[in-house]
Design a protein around this nucleic acid. Structure first.
Lengths: 224, 224
DNA sequence: ATTGTGAATGACTAACGGTCAGTTATTACG
DNA sequence: CGTAATAACTGACCGTTAGTCATTCACAAT
């Protein structure tokens, strides 16, 4: 009586195959230019079948994006798992985000669509909820580390951990967006090295978030 | 022989009428949902006529957005024209941006499309260039003020004015984006007051950009 | 062998951005 | 004034594509 289970597995596998095909096509063309027929071709299925597994093109897009969230989560987790000082963990976190941005640009790009509900025309409530939950894991993880920093007296107390998480994320994110969208414009027309700006901004922000004590120690690491 | 001139004026006026109709429809529905037929209806013209004045729906959208850039530029200009200390001018600048965001949300929203070339499918090179030039004015103005701050010893010298301008803009912008897209999510699910974050972030950043001298004076305004 | 079930198909529909041959309005000219 | 020339405008039409659904197909149950 394992037939039912096998069918379930096969269905799951089909869903996965569709996701793989969609990943390939979306990475190459983006949401707007990619067509469902193309994805169907890549999956060696008919278009109708795609709709048995995903409710809309946008749902499928977010399905692919969710893999990106998983990857980022894993990278964050690894950054926290290395036993090190909290300060070093904070830096690892920051670096992990930049690393994700550099090595998984395709996924990073997809986050914009998720972030901007103005662009959602056909996203199902289920998919929205799924993404929200998945995304929440990231924030919980980040907040936990920052809370540790506050408890240890490393980070200032007048900002809640979630506020710091938001600041760190939004600072990095806005610069990464510009790198992704307009790097050449900034470099050639304005003469601005955005990669440098990204590092600098993270550095400045971390300093800003540190308590005065921690900042003093940072400047003179081994107190005489 | 003023016929030619009159025709020119009428043509310009028609272009303006189309822009008005487009403004109304785009504000109500956004780029994706608004249709050219709707805009044609609103302008009491046929769809074909729209294409005599704008090359594509996206061009028309950017035409509307450019008005928003003009408005923001004027607000920035007013912020700098008030005779005041450079520090106060910097604050005015920051406030002007927030003010624009609050009172011209519809225009602000349109900036995203301009910023993200991934979304451009039919933008003409001419319109791109026009927007770029228009946009550049904003940066020039901001950079000028920041340069003054550096010259006066108010702002640190290890960051170029354009770098500071970029940091200020990207910090504000990323938070505003979140307010615009997800304010309710942040407030209800995370318990985060983004309006407060926006002020706080601007405040922290300004402090970060000040020289140590200036910061010290800021904390004890009247030195004994 | 036959029936039942659900997965898969692909022709079809609706919607929309953009086009262009044809119409109308206006000006120039004899 | 009549007519030709020019410019402005129109809307039916085209191509594309997301999404649908009646039908077909594969396979399991009996």
């Amino acid at each position: 009586m394992g037939i039912h289970e096998r069918k379930e597995r096969e269905k799951e596998q089909r869903r996965e195959e569709i996701l793989q095909a969609a990943t390939k096509v979306f990475f190459e063309k983006g949401l707007q230019v990619a067509t469902m027929d193309e994805i169907a071709d890549a999956a060696e299925l008919s278009k109708g079948t795609l709709y048995l597994y995903y409710k809309s093109k946008e749902d499928l897009y977010l399905g692919v994006m969710s893999i990106g969230i998983d990857i980022l989560y894993d990278m964050f987790l690894k950054a926290t798992e290395r036993t090190a000082s909290t300060l070093e963990t904070l830096r690892s976190f920051s670096r992990a985000f930049v690393e994700f941005f550099r090595t998984h640009r395709d996924y990073y790009r997809m986050f914009h669509f998720f972030q901007n509900p103005q662009l959602h025309k056909q996203v199902s409530d289920e998919m929205k909820e799924y993404c929200r939950t998945n995304n929440q894991k990231l924030w919980d993880l980040a907040t936990k580390i920052l809370q540790r920093g506050v408890d240890e007296g490393l980070l200032r107390k007048d900002l809640a951990p979630i506020e710091m998480a938001f600041l760190v994320w939004s600072t990095s994110n806005s610069i990464m967006m510009q790198i992704d969208f307009q790097e050449m414009h900034w470099r050639n027309h304005i003469g601005l090295d955005l990669d440098h700006m990204l590092e600098k901004a993270n550095e400045l922000l971390l300093e800003t978030l540190l308590t005065e004590d921690a900042r003093a120690k940072l400047e003179r690491p081994t107190v005489a």
